[in-house]
Design a protein around this nucleic acid. Structure first.
Lengths: 187, 187
DNA sequence: CTCCTGTTCGCAAAATCTTTGCGTTTTGAG
DNA sequence: CTCAAAACGCAAAGATTTTGCGAACAGGAG
């Protein structure tokens, strides 16, 4: 569980601890379920003391929320040439990733983590930023782009709501259907 | 913490325990925050053994989810004479109740409770059923009513999403704006 | 380079919470 | 009424969470 020596980021102890703990969470979560996911086990695998995790993250929920948010960061939004294509591709990808039991757990963790909602807030910010990038790019191309708030209300919100509150009732073409609605309104 | 002797429901011990525990949760949750909300404290106030709570509900999250779902049951949907009026009134009421820190906690609890998502499922079912009642009533009056799925996607989902992921960014007229959009689409 | 200061961490004891076995009480059906 | 199944309380055992304290570390000033 050592950090990569060629990691370009500063080699602070704090960074090493965070990376080790995140990696341990992902490893344990993938191997066994979440039922048997406890702070002491994570600490043991990460090579840190349990008290370190408690002091840094507060409790298991907030740690899981932090991991879930970190997981949604890496990918950049798709670039198909048109807003409609971008948004459709993004919605399909987002739905496919989040509709799985694993993806649903991450959404749940983000919502459940922290009394100050900081994790859910950051998750919302990431999604909003990614949509904003697609819209801004299209705007620079001279396209007529839908409103950011409308994309959130008409596409993102229904996907998230149905994953959280009506799992299993998501038809496979839901992403396309929702995105289509966004554009038929503009016509 | 005694049960009402005129309660029409059967006087099972199971019922008394459930009522006492739910009442204890609500009381402690209102008085102190949720940080200091633990199973032993709830059990002590409810006059039951902690092991009873663990055996019946599993853990604190599932108990809180159960209380949150039970809380959303009582009120019947409004009846203003038109679908549009009903839906607008319901959306405004729902948003007002859920946008408060307390209401947000209940939504969070519902999502966070249980690995089998049963609480979130029941919560979704309740909301769906209440909307269905309003639509059905209007249909019997001969009105042209919107589709149930559209109401969920266009009104309920955005409200819930923004409460969970973007708290504080909810304009006071959000409920009306969302409901209006539902009907301007039909025109 | 050395020192200084605030922060983070590990350790281990203490406190608290969770699980489990077993006997008792309650429930609901026959 | 009688009986089998289920729910509960109690208490011990096990696991997790909290906390005090000393040591190690990062960042900056001398």
């Amino acid at each position: 569980m050592r950090v990569n020596p060629q990691d370009p980021r500063p080699h602070g102890r704090a960074v090493r601890v965070q990376q080790a703990v995140h990696a341990a969470v992902r490893s344990l979560q993938a191997e066994h379920g979440r039922q048997s996911l406890t702070v002491p086990k994570i600490a043991a695998l990460a090579g840190v003391a349990p008290s370190t995790i408690y002091r840094r993250w507060g409790d298991l929920n907030q740690l899981l929320a932090d991991v879930a948010v970190a997981r949604m960061r890496p990918q950049g939004p798709p670039d198909t040439g048109t807003v409609r294509g971008d948004l459709t591709a993004w919605a399909e990808e987002y739905l496919e990733e989040s509709a799985s039991p694993t993806g649903r757990e991450f959404l749940r963790d983000m919502v459940a983590g922290g009394a100050d909602c900081s994790s859910a807030l950051r998750g919302g910010e990431y999604a909003r930023a990614r949509i904003g990038i697609m819209l801004e790019r299209a705007r620079h191309r001279g396209e007529d782009v839908p409103d950011l708030e409308d994309v959130i209300d008409l596409v993102l919100a229904p996907i998230v709501y149905r994953i959280l509150f009506e799992p299993g009732k998501l038809p496979p073409d839901a992403a396309r259907r929702l995105t289509d609605r966004l554009f038929e309104r503009d016509a």
